[in-house]
Amino acid sequence: MRHMLAAAITLSIAAALAPAAQAQDAARKLAQDAIIVDTHVDAPGILMDTWADLGTRADDREFDYPKAREGGLDIAFMSIYTSPGQDASGSAWQIANAMIDGVEALAHRHPDKFAILTSPKDALRLLEGGRVLLPLGMENGAPIGDKLENLKFFFDRGVRYITLAHSANNRIADSSYVVEKKWNGLSPFGREVVKEMNRLGIMVDVSHLGDASAAEAIALSKVPVIASHSAFRHFTPGFERNISDELAKAVAAKGGVVQIPFGTAFIDPASAADTQAHFRARNDFDHRNAELKAQGKPELDRAQFEKDWASAHPTRQSTLAQVLDQIDYGVKLIGIDHVGIGSDFDGVGGELANELKTVADFPHLVAGLQQRGYSEADIRKILGGNLLRTWAQIEAGAGK
Protein backbone atom coordinates (compact mmCIF):
# COMPACT_ATOMS: atom_id res chain seq x y z
CA MET A 1 0.00 0.00 0.00
CA ARG A 2 2.82 2.41 0.90
CA HIS A 3 4.51 1.73 -2.42
CA MET A 4 1.26 2.37 -4.28
CA LEU A 5 0.71 5.62 -2.37
CA ALA A 6 4.28 6.76 -3.04
CA ALA A 7 3.91 5.96 -6.72
CA ALA A 8 0.65 7.91 -6.87
CA ILE A 9 2.24 10.91 -5.19
CA THR A 10 5.20 10.75 -7.60
CA LEU A 11 2.87 10.65 -10.60
CA SER A 12 0.84 13.51 -9.17
CA ILE A 13 3.95 15.65 -8.69
CA ALA A 14 5.19 14.79 -12.18
CA ALA A 15 1.83 15.73 -13.67
CA ALA A 16 1.87 19.04 -11.81
CA LEU A 17 5.41 19.85 -12.93
CA ALA A 18 4.96 18.81 -16.55
CA PRO A 19 3.24 22.01 -17.74
CA ALA A 20 5.92 24.17 -16.09
CA ALA A 21 8.70 22.12 -17.69
CA GLN A 22 6.99 22.34 -21.07
CA ALA A 23 6.65 26.11 -20.69
CA GLN A 24 10.35 26.44 -19.87
CA ASP A 25 11.26 24.30 -22.87
CA ALA A 26 9.07 26.43 -25.13
CA ALA A 27 10.66 29.62 -23.82
CA ARG A 28 14.19 28.27 -24.32
CA LYS A 29 13.32 27.15 -27.83
CA LEU A 30 11.93 30.54 -28.81
CA ALA A 31 14.87 32.38 -27.21
CA GLN A 32 17.25 30.31 -29.32
CA ASP A 33 15.26 30.69 -32.52
CA ALA A 34 14.38 34.39 -32.35
CA ILE A 35 16.94 37.13 -33.01
CA ILE A 36 17.53 38.76 -29.62
CA VAL A 37 18.97 42.28 -29.74
CA ASP A 38 20.14 43.97 -26.53
CA THR A 39 20.95 47.64 -27.15
CA HIS A 40 22.98 48.23 -24.00
CA VAL A 41 25.73 45.98 -22.59
CA ASP A 42 28.59 47.64 -20.69
CA ALA A 43 31.26 45.01 -21.36
CA PRO A 44 33.78 47.50 -22.90
CA GLY A 45 34.23 49.27 -19.56
CA ILE A 46 35.18 45.97 -17.99
CA LEU A 47 37.63 45.27 -20.82
CA MET A 48 39.26 48.61 -19.98
CA ASP A 49 39.47 47.93 -16.24
CA THR A 50 40.63 44.32 -16.32
CA TRP A 51 40.87 42.36 -19.55
CA ALA A 52 38.55 39.39 -19.38
CA ASP A 53 38.45 36.90 -22.22
CA LEU A 54 34.73 37.09 -22.89
CA GLY A 55 35.05 34.30 -25.42
CA THR A 56 35.12 31.95 -22.44
CA ARG A 57 32.92 31.82 -19.38
CA ALA A 58 33.68 34.60 -16.92
CA ASP A 59 31.70 34.01 -13.75
CA ASP A 60 32.12 37.57 -12.50
CA ARG A 61 30.68 39.03 -15.72
CA GLU A 62 27.09 39.32 -16.89
CA PHE A 63 28.03 39.05 -20.56
CA ASP A 64 30.30 36.48 -22.18
CA TYR A 65 30.02 34.16 -25.16
CA PRO A 66 28.91 30.96 -23.38
CA LYS A 67 26.20 32.79 -21.42
CA ALA A 68 25.05 34.64 -24.54
CA ARG A 69 24.66 31.36 -26.42
CA GLU A 70 22.88 29.79 -23.45
CA GLY A 71 20.39 32.66 -23.33
CA GLY A 72 19.93 33.04 -27.08
CA LEU A 73 21.41 36.56 -27.27
CA ASP A 74 22.46 37.27 -30.86
CA ILE A 75 23.25 40.99 -31.08
CA ALA A 76 24.70 42.90 -28.13
CA PHE A 77 25.40 46.61 -28.56
CA MET A 78 28.67 47.32 -26.78
CA SER A 79 28.45 50.54 -24.74
CA ILE A 80 31.34 52.92 -25.43
CA TYR A 81 30.81 54.94 -22.27
CA THR A 82 32.74 58.03 -21.18
CA SER A 83 32.02 60.04 -18.05
CA PRO A 84 31.49 63.78 -17.56
CA GLY A 85 34.79 63.82 -15.69
CA GLN A 86 36.58 62.37 -18.71
CA ASP A 87 34.83 64.95 -20.87
CA ALA A 88 36.09 67.74 -18.60
CA SER A 89 39.65 66.37 -18.57
CA GLY A 90 39.79 65.97 -22.34
CA SER A 91 40.38 62.22 -22.13
CA ALA A 92 37.01 61.06 -23.54
CA TRP A 93 38.36 60.82 -27.12
CA GLN A 94 41.20 58.50 -26.17
CA ILE A 95 39.11 56.38 -23.81
CA ALA A 96 36.38 55.88 -26.41
CA ASN A 97 38.95 54.77 -28.97
CA ALA A 98 40.58 52.42 -26.47
CA MET A 99 37.20 50.83 -25.72
CA ILE A 100 36.56 50.31 -29.43
CA ASP A 101 40.05 48.79 -29.70
CA GLY A 102 39.06 46.37 -26.92
CA VAL A 103 35.88 45.25 -28.68
CA GLU A 104 37.78 44.81 -31.93
CA ALA A 105 40.43 42.76 -30.12
CA LEU A 106 37.73 40.53 -28.66
CA ALA A 107 36.30 39.89 -32.12
CA HIS A 108 39.73 39.34 -33.68
CA ARG A 109 40.74 36.84 -30.99
CA HIS A 110 37.54 34.86 -31.49
CA PRO A 111 36.41 35.25 -35.13
CA ASP A 112 34.33 32.09 -34.74
CA LYS A 113 32.44 33.54 -31.76
CA PHE A 114 32.17 37.31 -32.32
CA ALA A 115 31.90 39.78 -35.16
CA ILE A 116 31.50 43.55 -35.28
CA LEU A 117 28.12 44.46 -36.79
CA THR A 118 27.78 47.79 -38.61
CA SER A 119 24.58 47.23 -40.61
CA PRO A 120 21.38 45.26 -39.99
CA LYS A 121 21.71 43.98 -43.56
CA ASP A 122 24.71 41.91 -42.48
CA ALA A 123 23.15 40.36 -39.39
CA LEU A 124 21.87 37.06 -40.78
CA ARG A 125 25.10 36.39 -42.68
CA LEU A 126 27.35 37.12 -39.73
CA LEU A 127 25.19 35.13 -37.29
CA GLU A 128 25.98 31.94 -39.19
CA GLY A 129 28.10 29.58 -37.17
CA GLY A 130 26.71 30.76 -33.86
CA ARG A 131 28.47 34.11 -33.58
CA VAL A 132 27.35 36.85 -31.22
CA LEU A 133 27.40 40.18 -33.06
CA LEU A 134 28.81 43.31 -31.46
CA PRO A 135 27.59 46.64 -32.84
CA LEU A 136 28.82 49.75 -31.04
CA GLY A 137 26.75 52.34 -29.19
CA MET A 138 28.45 55.46 -27.78
CA GLU A 139 27.04 56.43 -24.39
CA ASN A 140 27.67 60.18 -24.01
CA GLY A 141 28.61 62.35 -26.96
CA ALA A 142 31.68 63.64 -25.09
CA PRO A 143 34.26 61.97 -27.39
CA ILE A 144 32.98 64.09 -30.29
CA GLY A 145 34.38 67.15 -28.53
CA ASP A 146 33.48 70.25 -30.50
CA LYS A 147 34.42 68.80 -33.91
CA LEU A 148 31.53 67.72 -36.13
CA GLU A 149 33.93 65.71 -38.30
CA ASN A 150 34.52 63.38 -35.35
CA LEU A 151 31.10 61.88 -36.03
CA LYS A 152 32.36 60.52 -39.36
CA PHE A 153 35.50 59.26 -37.61
CA PHE A 154 33.48 57.27 -35.08
CA PHE A 155 31.02 56.11 -37.74
CA ASP A 156 33.97 54.67 -39.65
CA ARG A 157 35.06 52.95 -36.44
CA GLY A 158 31.64 51.27 -36.21
CA VAL A 159 29.59 53.45 -33.85
CA ARG A 160 25.93 53.16 -34.80
CA TYR A 161 24.14 55.03 -32.04
CA ILE A 162 25.13 57.92 -29.79
CA THR A 163 23.48 58.77 -26.48
CA LEU A 164 23.82 62.53 -26.75
CA ALA A 165 24.55 63.18 -23.05
CA HIS A 166 24.93 61.13 -19.87
CA SER A 167 24.88 62.28 -16.25
CA ALA A 168 25.87 65.91 -16.81
CA ASN A 169 25.12 68.63 -19.33
CA ASN A 170 27.62 68.64 -22.19
CA ARG A 171 28.30 70.51 -25.44
CA ILE A 172 25.35 68.83 -27.15
CA ALA A 173 22.45 68.51 -24.73
CA ASP A 174 21.27 68.54 -21.12
CA SER A 175 21.28 65.56 -18.79
CA SER A 176 18.19 64.28 -17.01
CA TYR A 177 20.16 64.01 -13.77
CA VAL A 178 21.04 67.70 -13.53
CA VAL A 179 18.66 70.20 -11.90
CA GLU A 180 20.06 73.27 -13.65
CA LYS A 181 19.86 72.78 -17.40
CA LYS A 182 22.32 74.60 -19.66
CA TRP A 183 20.53 74.52 -23.01
CA ASN A 184 16.85 73.75 -22.29
CA GLY A 185 16.92 71.76 -25.49
CA LEU A 186 19.86 71.08 -27.77
CA SER A 187 22.82 73.42 -28.05
CA PRO A 188 23.45 75.05 -31.44
CA PHE A 189 26.24 72.49 -31.89
CA GLY A 190 23.86 69.75 -30.76
CA ARG A 191 21.45 70.60 -33.57
CA GLU A 192 24.27 70.19 -36.06
CA VAL A 193 25.24 66.90 -34.40
CA VAL A 194 21.71 65.48 -34.87
CA LYS A 195 21.65 66.55 -38.52
CA GLU A 196 25.04 64.99 -39.17
CA MET A 197 24.05 61.78 -37.39
CA ASN A 198 21.01 61.60 -39.66
CA ARG A 199 23.22 62.14 -42.70
CA LEU A 200 25.65 59.40 -41.69
CA GLY A 201 23.07 56.91 -40.46
CA ILE A 202 23.97 56.99 -36.76
CA MET A 203 20.95 56.42 -34.51
CA VAL A 204 20.07 59.35 -32.23
CA ASP A 205 19.63 58.00 -28.69
CA VAL A 206 17.58 60.10 -26.24
CA SER A 207 18.16 57.97 -23.12
CA HIS A 208 19.69 60.01 -20.27
CA LEU A 209 18.60 63.32 -21.80
CA GLY A 210 16.65 66.04 -20.04
CA ASP A 211 13.10 66.27 -21.34
CA ALA A 212 13.57 69.45 -23.37
CA SER A 213 16.73 68.09 -25.01
CA ALA A 214 15.03 64.79 -25.86
CA ALA A 215 11.98 66.56 -27.27
CA GLU A 216 14.07 68.76 -29.55
CA ALA A 217 16.22 65.85 -30.73
CA ILE A 218 13.13 63.82 -31.62
CA ALA A 219 11.49 66.74 -33.42
CA LEU A 220 14.65 67.70 -35.31
CA SER A 221 15.59 64.21 -36.50
CA LYS A 222 14.47 63.35 -40.03
CA VAL A 223 14.53 59.62 -39.27
CA PRO A 224 13.42 57.49 -36.29
CA VAL A 225 15.21 57.86 -32.96
CA ILE A 226 15.71 55.37 -30.14
CA ALA A 227 15.81 55.33 -26.34
CA SER A 228 18.50 52.65 -25.95
CA HIS A 229 17.83 51.87 -22.28
CA SER A 230 14.94 53.82 -20.75
CA ALA A 231 12.16 52.53 -18.54
CA PHE A 232 8.82 54.34 -18.28
CA ARG A 233 8.53 57.25 -15.85
CA HIS A 234 4.93 56.22 -15.18
CA PHE A 235 6.34 53.79 -12.58
CA THR A 236 8.91 56.22 -11.12
CA PRO A 237 7.28 59.68 -10.85
CA GLY A 238 9.76 62.54 -10.79
CA PHE A 239 12.62 60.41 -12.15
CA GLU A 240 13.50 62.33 -15.32
CA ARG A 241 16.01 59.65 -16.35
CA ASN A 242 13.05 57.43 -17.31
CA ILE A 243 11.07 58.40 -20.37
CA SER A 244 7.79 60.30 -20.01
CA ASP A 245 4.62 59.16 -21.74
CA GLU A 246 4.72 62.24 -23.96
CA LEU A 247 8.27 61.62 -25.12
CA ALA A 248 7.66 57.89 -25.59
CA LYS A 249 4.71 58.71 -27.86
CA ALA A 250 6.93 61.09 -29.81
CA VAL A 251 9.58 58.37 -30.27
CA ALA A 252 6.90 55.97 -31.53
CA ALA A 253 5.34 58.57 -33.83
CA LYS A 254 8.76 59.00 -35.43
CA GLY A 255 8.97 55.22 -35.98
CA GLY A 256 11.46 54.56 -33.19
CA VAL A 257 11.72 52.23 -30.21
CA VAL A 258 11.94 52.46 -26.43
CA GLN A 259 14.28 49.75 -25.13
CA ILE A 260 13.48 48.53 -21.60
CA PRO A 261 16.36 48.06 -19.10
CA PHE A 262 16.56 45.43 -16.36
CA GLY A 263 18.37 47.53 -13.75
CA THR A 264 16.74 47.91 -10.34
CA ALA A 265 17.59 51.62 -10.38
CA PHE A 266 15.25 52.15 -13.34
CA ILE A 267 12.33 49.84 -12.62
CA ASP A 268 11.96 50.16 -8.83
CA PRO A 269 10.53 53.51 -7.60
CA ALA A 270 12.59 53.76 -4.39
CA SER A 271 15.78 52.80 -6.20
CA ALA A 272 15.06 55.34 -8.93
CA ALA A 273 14.76 58.09 -6.31
CA ASP A 274 18.07 57.01 -4.78
CA THR A 275 19.73 56.97 -8.18
CA GLN A 276 18.61 60.46 -9.10
CA ALA A 277 19.78 61.78 -5.74
CA HIS A 278 23.11 59.97 -6.12
CA PHE A 279 23.91 61.48 -9.51
CA ARG A 280 23.01 64.95 -8.31
CA ALA A 281 25.13 64.52 -5.17
CA ARG A 282 27.98 63.22 -7.31
CA ASN A 283 27.76 66.22 -9.64
CA ASP A 284 27.76 68.57 -6.63
CA PHE A 285 30.80 66.70 -5.27
CA ASP A 286 32.64 67.10 -8.59
CA HIS A 287 31.84 70.82 -8.73
CA ARG A 288 33.11 71.24 -5.17
CA ASN A 289 36.34 69.46 -6.00
CA ALA A 290 36.80 71.61 -9.10
CA GLU A 291 36.45 74.70 -6.93
CA LEU A 292 38.94 73.38 -4.39
CA LYS A 293 41.42 72.52 -7.14
CA ALA A 294 41.08 76.01 -8.64
CA GLN A 295 41.79 77.48 -5.21
CA GLY A 296 44.85 75.28 -4.76
CA LYS A 297 43.27 73.43 -1.86
CA PRO A 298 43.22 69.64 -1.18
CA GLU A 299 40.36 67.85 -2.95
CA LEU A 300 37.77 65.73 -1.19
CA ASP A 301 38.14 61.94 -1.20
CA ARG A 302 35.85 60.52 -3.90
CA ALA A 303 36.21 56.95 -2.65
CA GLN A 304 35.04 58.04 0.79
CA PHE A 305 32.10 59.90 -0.75
CA GLU A 306 30.98 56.76 -2.59
CA LYS A 307 31.48 54.60 0.49
CA ASP A 308 29.39 56.94 2.63
CA TRP A 309 26.66 57.07 0.01
CA ALA A 310 26.48 53.29 -0.31
CA SER A 311 26.31 52.91 3.45
CA ALA A 312 23.37 55.31 3.68
CA HIS A 313 21.52 53.80 0.70
CA PRO A 314 21.34 49.98 0.91
CA THR A 315 20.79 47.92 -2.22
CA ARG A 316 17.16 47.16 -3.08
CA GLN A 317 15.61 44.29 -5.01
CA SER A 318 13.55 44.22 -8.20
CA THR A 319 11.75 41.47 -10.07
CA LEU A 320 11.12 40.01 -13.50
CA ALA A 321 7.47 40.97 -12.99
CA GLN A 322 8.49 44.65 -12.83
CA VAL A 323 10.29 44.32 -16.18
CA LEU A 324 7.22 42.65 -17.66
CA ASP A 325 5.04 45.44 -16.23
CA GLN A 326 7.25 47.95 -18.06
CA ILE A 327 6.82 46.07 -21.33
CA ASP A 328 3.06 45.74 -20.84
CA TYR A 329 2.77 49.46 -20.18
CA GLY A 330 4.87 50.36 -23.19
CA VAL A 331 2.90 48.13 -25.52
CA LYS A 332 -0.38 49.68 -24.35
CA LEU A 333 1.01 53.22 -24.55
CA ILE A 334 2.92 53.22 -27.84
CA GLY A 335 2.18 49.89 -29.52
CA ILE A 336 3.83 46.51 -29.94
CA ASP A 337 6.07 47.81 -32.75
CA HIS A 338 7.89 50.32 -30.56
CA VAL A 339 9.16 48.38 -27.52
CA GLY A 340 12.40 46.44 -27.15
CA ILE A 341 15.23 45.51 -24.76
CA GLY A 342 18.25 47.47 -23.50
CA SER A 343 19.32 45.52 -20.41
CA ASP A 344 22.28 47.51 -19.01
CA PHE A 345 24.08 44.26 -18.18
CA ASP A 346 27.51 44.89 -16.64
CA GLY A 347 26.54 48.52 -16.12
CA VAL A 348 24.61 48.63 -12.86
CA GLY A 349 26.85 46.76 -10.45
CA GLY A 350 24.75 43.61 -10.50
CA GLU A 351 21.63 45.42 -9.27
CA LEU A 352 19.27 43.72 -11.70
CA ALA A 353 15.83 42.20 -11.65
CA ASN A 354 15.61 38.76 -10.09
CA GLU A 355 15.70 36.07 -12.81
CA LEU A 356 17.47 38.49 -15.18
CA LYS A 357 20.97 38.49 -13.75
CA THR A 358 23.02 37.63 -16.86
CA VAL A 359 22.56 37.27 -20.61
CA ALA A 360 21.89 33.58 -20.00
CA ASP A 361 18.53 34.54 -18.50
CA PHE A 362 16.67 35.75 -21.60
CA PRO A 363 14.53 32.57 -21.61
CA HIS A 364 13.03 33.78 -18.29
CA LEU A 365 11.93 36.97 -20.01
CA VAL A 366 10.49 34.98 -22.91
CA ALA A 367 8.62 32.69 -20.51
CA GLY A 368 7.20 35.70 -18.71
CA LEU A 369 5.98 37.22 -21.97
CA GLN A 370 4.41 33.91 -22.96
CA GLN A 371 2.65 33.65 -19.61
CA ARG A 372 1.24 37.15 -20.10
CA GLY A 373 -0.31 36.12 -23.38
CA TYR A 374 2.02 37.62 -25.98
CA SER A 375 2.01 35.82 -29.31
CA GLU A 376 5.22 34.40 -30.74
CA ALA A 377 5.24 37.08 -33.46
CA ASP A 378 4.93 39.86 -30.90
CA ILE A 379 7.63 38.36 -28.67
CA ARG A 380 9.98 38.29 -31.65
CA LYS A 381 9.29 41.99 -32.22
CA ILE A 382 10.11 42.85 -28.60
CA LEU A 383 13.23 40.68 -28.52
CA GLY A 384 14.82 42.33 -31.53
CA GLY A 385 12.62 42.72 -34.57
CA ASN A 386 11.55 46.25 -33.69
CA LEU A 387 15.10 47.49 -33.19
CA LEU A 388 16.35 45.92 -36.42
CA ARG A 389 13.47 47.51 -38.36
CA THR A 390 14.18 50.93 -36.86
CA TRP A 391 17.91 50.63 -37.49
CA ALA A 392 17.24 49.68 -41.13
CA GLN A 393 14.98 52.71 -41.57
CA ILE A 394 17.63 55.03 -40.12
CA GLU A 395 20.29 53.50 -42.35
CA ALA A 396 18.03 53.85 -45.40
CA GLY A 397 17.49 57.53 -44.58
CA ALA A 398 21.22 58.30 -44.41
CA GLY A 399 22.31 61.06 -46.75
CA LYS A 400 18.78 62.06 -47.68
Rank of each mutant, 00 (worst) to 15 (best):
D268T: 07
D268L: 02
A270S: 07
A272I: 07
D274W: 05
Q276Y: 05
H278I: 12
R280M: 13
R280C: 03
A281V: 06
D284P: 02
D284H: 07
F285T: 03
D286V: 09
D286C: 00
H287F: 03
H287V: 10
R288H: 13
N289E: 14
N289M: 13
A290E: 07
A290Y: 03
E291A: 08
K293V: 07
K293P: 04
G296H: 14
P298N: 00
R302H: 13
R302D: 12
A303S: 12
A303L: 06
Q304P: 11
Q304N: 12
F305E: 01
F305G: 10
D308T: 07
D308E: 15
D308C: 06
W309C: 03
A310G: 14
S311L: 15
S311Y: 14
H313R: 14
P314W: 06
T315H: 15
Q317R: 13
Q317P: 01
S318Y: 09
T319I: 05
L320I: 13
A321V: 12
A321T: 15
L324I: 13
L324R: 04
D325H: 02
I327E: 10
Y329R: 02
Y329H: 08
G330P: 09
G330R: 12
G330K: 08
K332L: 14
K332V: 13
L333E: 12
L333Y: 06
G335W: 02
D337R: 10
H338T: 02
G340N: 10
G340L: 00
I341K: 02
D344N: 04
D346S: 05
V348K: 11
L352P: 01
A353S: 11
A353N: 02
A353H: 01
L356D: 06
K357P: 00
A360I: 01
A360V: 08
F362S: 02
F362M: 08
P363S: 00
H364N: 15
L365E: 08
A367I: 03
L369G: 09
Q370G: 03
Q371T: 13
Q371Y: 08
Q371S: 15
R372F: 07
R372E: 06
